[in-house]
Structures are given as C-alpha cells and as structure tokens.
Design a protein around this nucleic acid. Structure first.
Lengths: 156, 156
DNA sequence: TATTGTTATACTCTATAACTATA
DNA sequence: TATAGTTATAGAGTATAACAATA
C-alpha cells in the first residue's frame, strides 16, 4: 500500500478542499514575505493604517486579532521603524498608530511580493477563471453571519 | 472611527479571502462535529480506513499529519471503540488500523453532519455556482507541486 | 543501518486574567 | 464602573529528539 493508492473520501468535500487551499495560501504568503522579515499579520496592519489613523483597539476589530497579539505586532512594527505609537489627544487611554515613510515603502514591497505569490498560486487558472473564483469567494465571504451565527440567517 | 469605516486593503486579494474562508470552513466543520465529540482529524482518519487497511505511517502520508499526532488520534479512536490497532503479520513493526462497526456508523453520522455544515456554508451560492467553485478549487488543489515544490513541475 | 510506533520535551500560538492609566 | 493598553501566565497545538522493537 503506497500513498498513491490511498482513497481520500474527503476530497469531494468543497469545504475540505477550501481548508487545504486556505492553509496552502497562508503558507505561500508567509514564505513570500520572509525576505522582508515580516509576517502576514504585520502587513495586514500596515495595510489598515495606510491612509487612515487607527487605535490598537480599532485594529483589533478590523483584523480580528486580540489585543495581546496586537501589542506584539505593533511592538514589532515600531521597532522596525514602520509605525509610530502615540497617545491620542482626544482619549489618552488610546494609542494612535501611524504609518511612517519606511513603513509605507515596505508595505508597497510587501504588497508586490504578495501579489506575485498569489499569481504563482493561481497559475493553474486562466484570467477569466481567476475572476470567477474571486467573485465566488467574495460572495461566500461577505455575509459572515451565515458562517458564524446561523441563527441570523432567518432574517433574510 | 468605527469598525465599519475602516478600509481593508487586503480584501481584494483572492489569496487572503481564501485564507479567511478556509479558517471559517475549518471552524464550521469542528462545530458541526462537536455533538459526536470528534475533531475533524479523527473523521479524516476514519474516512481513510473506511474500505482500506492502512498503517499509521500510511495514514500520516495520506493526511499530512506527523506520526506523533497520529499516535494521539489513533489512541482516541481506539479508546472510543471506532478503530482497532493490530500488529501487522507481514511487518511486525507496523500497526494496522482497521475500522470497527461503530466506527463505520459514526463515520456515516460525521459525514452527514459535515455535508450539512458545508451546505450551510455554501448558502450564498446557487447549485451551479457551487459546482463552479468546486471545480475551480479542485483544479487549484490537485497540482500540489505548483504550490509546495515548484522544481517538480518540469518533470510533467 | 533504517523504519515504525512511542514517549518526552520544547517551542509556538493563542486565550485568560490581572494590572495601570485614563474615561 | 468601563475601556485601552500592557504584562504574565496557562493551555493547546505542533515540531524535535530520543528510545524500543523490528526489518
């Protein structure tokens, strides 16, 4: 019995294929960002503070990370000179996170690397198929309540 | 600034949407299996030994889990009476894992729950769109070498 | 010497709780 | 009293290394 002979009774589950692909895409993204010594989460935060000023709490809501993780991510970005932490004048409990010039530059680099990685990932598909896929995934993604809170579906 | 106002510069990356959906699908699957007190990995192993006899090593190759994880999973399945561990007569180093009758029954239950969960997950899409999505994802998924080992592509 | 299963261990991630400073 | 940020700690998950039995 070799690995090639084994029958996978899950391969016909769309959900399972989705999980596998999601993991593969995540790993691909991390590998793509490795040259910049950044993780995907850092780039994600850079993307959010690109053009808007947010508190750490805002960033938590936006990204879904919890606040202890966010502290570490902002620590990293600050140490690397990509973001600044400042007390909010309006509410001195809050830290306002702003993008620095090097931060904006590295974000552009990172976005380029991610785009290249994604392109490699989508190689098996034609341009039209990629658009199709993107549309379908986005439609699936937008109503989060359908995924996390089934009881809310009744309202539609 | 509220969460609704924030601009997400990653939302137009297919790869990122894929990662988010993959995680959501995985969580959905775990929730669906909770009534059976099984994790997705257990069902995955049950699926593989359904109709074929495999060693733990075979299961590792098939599922991608490492052998220490597999020990724990098979421990669980054996304790629950869903699988049996026996020394292989052909190679006494190996443990041959076989599905028990209760194991086959619980697998059917689990498969049903997963199918129902997947259906809920795919609610936003029509039947034709689901097929489209499945086809696209499968095409993206099959050539793993394109994702993990680019150097192997030349050989085919 | 290499492989299978096992155990022990370490390391990463994430979740929880507690503390501070502000409101 | 509640919130934002921080820190410390505990838990789960995963990876690594070492070991016994067998090839």
């Amino acid at each position: 019995m070799t690995a090639e002979d084994t029958v996978d009774r899950m391969d016909d589950h769309t959900g399972f294929v989705l999980v596998k692909l999601g993991q593969a895409a995540a790993e691909q993204a991390e590998r793509a960002l490795a040259p910049l010594e950044l993780r995907a989460r850092h780039v994600r935060v850079l993307g959010f503070i690109h053009g808007q000023t947010l508190s750490q709490q805002d960033l938590c809501q936006a990204t879904g990370m919890d606040r202890t993780t966010m502290v570490a991510v902002v620590d990293d970005l600050e140490r690397l000179g990509y973001a600044r932490r400042e007390r909010s004048a309006a509410d001195r409990r809050k830290h306002v996170i702003t993008l620095t010039e090097p931060g904006a530059a590295v974000y552009e680099d990172a976005a380029g690397l991610l785009l290249k990685a994604q392109d490699a990932f989508l190689t098996p598909l034609s341009g039209a198929e990629r658009e199709q896929l993107h549309t379908l995934l986005t439609r699936l993604s937008s109503p989060e309540y359908a995924v996390c809170a089934p009881e809310d579906v009744s309202g539609r």
